[in-house]
Structure formats: C-alpha cells, structure tokens
Amino acid sequence: MFSSKYSVIPGFWLSLGYTLSWLSLIVLLPLAALLLYASHIHFDQLITILSNRQLQSALKLSLYTSFYASLLASIFGAFLAWMLTRYSFTGKKIIDSMIDLPLALPTAIAGIALTTLYAPNGLLGSLLPFKVAYTPLGIIVAMVFVTIPFTIRTLEPIIKDIPYSVEEAAKTLGATPLQTFLYVIFPMLFPAWLTGFSLAMARSLGEYGSVVFIAANIPYKTEILPILIVSKLDQFDYTGATVISLLMLLISFGLLFFITIIQRWIKPHRLIWFMTHLSLPFFSKKKSS
C-alpha cells in the first residue's frame, strides 16, 4: 500500500511503523479525543455557540491582531534577515544569537516583561503618546515578539542561497535598485516570506501566555479566542471550549494547507513572469533588443 518505489536502503517498515505509532500516540490520539467529544455536540448547540456575538468579536479580534502581527513580524523579520545575511557589522553575532530567545522564553515572562515595558507607568509606555498595553495594539506587540524568530529563520537560508552575482548581473545589465528588487529579489524571496507569514499567523492566532497579561481581556474589545477557551473551560463549558478549539484548528489547518499550496505553486519563475507582465506605470521596462 505504501511503498511505491523500491529502495535498497533497509528499515522502511521499522521507521514508518515507529513514526506512525509515535505520531498517533502523541498527536493524533489527543486530536481524536477532541473530535470524539465534538461528535456528541448537537447541530443546534453548535449554531447557538457560533452565533454568540462575544465569540464572533473574539474571532474577529484574533484574526485581525494575528494578521497585522504576522505582517509586522514578517516585514521586520525580512529586514533583519536581510541585514544579518548580507551585511557584516559589529554586534551582528549578538543579534544573531538573540533572535531565537523569544522562542525559549516562557510566553508568560514575555507577557509580564512587555506589560511592564508598555504599561502607562512603564519605561516605553510612559514615553509613547498613545496607549499600547491593554489595547489591541498591545496584543499585536506581544504576538510580534513571540513570532518574529519564525519569520527570520524561514527567510535566512533563502537569502543566503541568492548569490551576489545575480544582483551584480542585474546591475551590469542596467537595472535600477528598484527593478533589481522587483524582478530579481522579490520573486525569489516571496514564497519563503509568505510561508513565514503563515507560520507566524498560525502561531500568533493561538498565542495565550503573553497576550493574557497585556490584553485587558474585556469581552467584545480585547478578548481573543484562546482567552475565551480558557474562560469557557473555567465555567465547566467543555462544549463551548471544544467548539472554539475546533474553529481555531480549522483556521490553522487552512493556513497549513495554504503553506503547502505556496510551496507547490508559487515558484520564483512564475513570479518573475507575473512581475514582468504586470505593467507597472512608474518605471519603463527596458526591452532588450
């Protein structure tokens, strides 16, 4: 059933068997428990839960904060990744080694530290003219901190693989920096950038530990889906918690599916074709004669 092409290397059944059973034990079995629990939920119960306005506003808030957070994380991430691979400067090693710290730091600590920093009486919070902590902006700040390592680490190897000679060639052929970016660099980076973006979005959508400290948790205003799950659970409402979890899982699966599609369909040469056929008004494309 599985093996379609014969390989001379032994150990197929052992490794496949182990992989599948461990995967089932750790990941699939618990997910099955969720589905099993969900299968007891009646359809009208589902409708009642999903039509709740509090849930809908939490969903909206979760989606838009995680969208903007991943957008910011992937823009800043792309910038940092570019600087780290293409430039050498003093302190680069320090930056490079600290990029992954948000991954290792317990999210609760990140939340406490960020709240201390951005609260109205905090170091940065007292300087800024607008409120950060206890607003949706605070949620975005926490999510950017937690997800930016992913975006940087997804882009770094891709940028490393673009040889300098490509840019040099573009330059010798008379391309302006903007043209080099749009027709050469952008098509090569975009698939990885989009993958990093989706990964970041999937992570920030589910982020709890850091957000719970910096959000004010006001229903309809600053309450995100994971906080709502915890609040449902603490009221013994397993059904509600399960439904919201399933909803979040669906969105995550959607994002994962999206990543697979990106990796399969959005290829640099397709993007280059697209970019060259897109007649952008602000520069005249030199047709080689």
């Binding site: 004010a216 906080i227 915890v230």
Partner: peptide, 19 residues
C-alpha cells in the same frame, strides 16, 4: 478599564501598573 482573569491579577494591575 480592564477585566483581569483573577483576583490577584486585578490587584497587581492596580498596584504594579498603576491602573
């Protein structure tokens, strides 16, 4: 202005964050 998740978090916001 905010609704913390527990009694203690609420006290901490009042005392440490000055809210």
């Amino acid at each position: 202005p905010i609704l913390d998740t527990g009694a203690r978090s609420s006290s901490l916001s009042f005392i440490q964050r000055g809210l």
